[in-house]
Simulated scan of single mutants.
Amino acid sequence: MDRHGKATQASTPLYQLKSEFFKTLGHPVRIRVLELLSVREHAVAEMLPEVGVEAASLSQQLAVLRRANLVVTRREGSNVYYSLIDSQIAELLSVARSILSGVLEGQAELLADLRASRPTP
């Protein structure tokens, strides 16, 4: 416990830390930002049209990712560039894509089976 009575990370169960990690990923803008950063470093201005939200909203979501230690920044003149802190984040997104592809394929097969078994009038 810290001096405010809150549990420290060291005493927090791993499953709870994982839950917090996935909650951080639980926003479409944050996922899109991480997808973009999986390809390469981006300036904030570059991400705006790709993400499709207002600058203030993007800034808020980037702050969440920074606090979660998923991204790092560097400043060059008036531009702020973001990059992933670890390439495993890109791998995680790739695994999620693969899992979802399998789920959707299974649903497509089920839909095809349902349509094929539809009684004819």
Results as ranks from 00 to 15, higher is better:
4 H>Y: 01
4 H>F: 02
5 G>K: 00
5 G>V: 00
5 G>I: 00
6 K>L: 14
7 A>F: 03
10 A>L: 06
10 A>S: 09
10 A>R: 10
11 S>R: 08
11 S>F: 03
11 S>V: 07
13 P>D: 01
14 L>G: 02
16 Q>Y: 07
17 L>Q: 12
18 K>F: 03
21 F>C: 05
21 F>Y: 10
22 F>I: 07
22 F>L: 11
22 F>T: 09
22 F>G: 08
24 T>E: 13
25 L>K: 04
26 G>K: 11
28 P>G: 05
29 V>A: 07
30 R>Y: 05
30 R>E: 05
32 R>W: 06
33 V>E: 01
33 V>Y: 00
33 V>P: 00
34 L>K: 02
34 L>D: 05
34 L>M: 09
35 E>D: 06
38 S>L: 03
38 S>T: 03
39 V>E: 15
39 V>R: 14
40 R>G: 07
40 R>K: 11
43 A>K: 05
44 V>T: 10
44 V>Q: 13
44 V>C: 08
45 A>T: 14
45 A>R: 12
46 E>I: 00
47 M>T: 04
48 L>A: 10
49 P>Y: 03
50 E>R: 15
50 E>T: 11
53 V>K: 04
56 A>G: 11
56 A>S: 15
56 A>M: 14
58 L>A: 05
59 S>K: 10
59 S>M: 10
60 Q>M: 08
64 V>Y: 03
65 L>G: 04
67 R>N: 14
70 L>M: 05
70 L>W: 00
71 V>R: 03
75 R>E: 14
77 G>M: 06
77 G>D: 06
81 Y>S: 03
83 S>F: 02
84 L>W: 01
85 I>Y: 10
85 I>M: 10
85 I>D: 09
86 D>R: 08
87 S>R: 07
88 Q>Y: 13
88 Q>T: 13
89 I>P: 01
89 I>R: 04
91 E>P: 03
92 L>R: 06
96 A>G: 10
96 A>T: 05
96 A>S: 15
97 R>T: 10
98 S>P: 04
99 I>W: 06
100 L>C: 12
100 L>F: 09
101 S>E: 09
101 S>H: 12
102 G>F: 02
103 V>N: 06
106 G>L: 06
106 G>K: 04
106 G>N: 07
107 Q>G: 11
108 A>C: 07
109 E>T: 09
109 E>L: 13
109 E>G: 08
110 L>H: 12
111 L>N: 11
112 A>N: 12
114 L>C: 14
115 R>K: 15
115 R>L: 15
118 R>C: 13
119 P>R: 15
120 T>V: 15
120 T>L: 15
120 T>W: 14
121 P>L: 11
121 P>W: 08
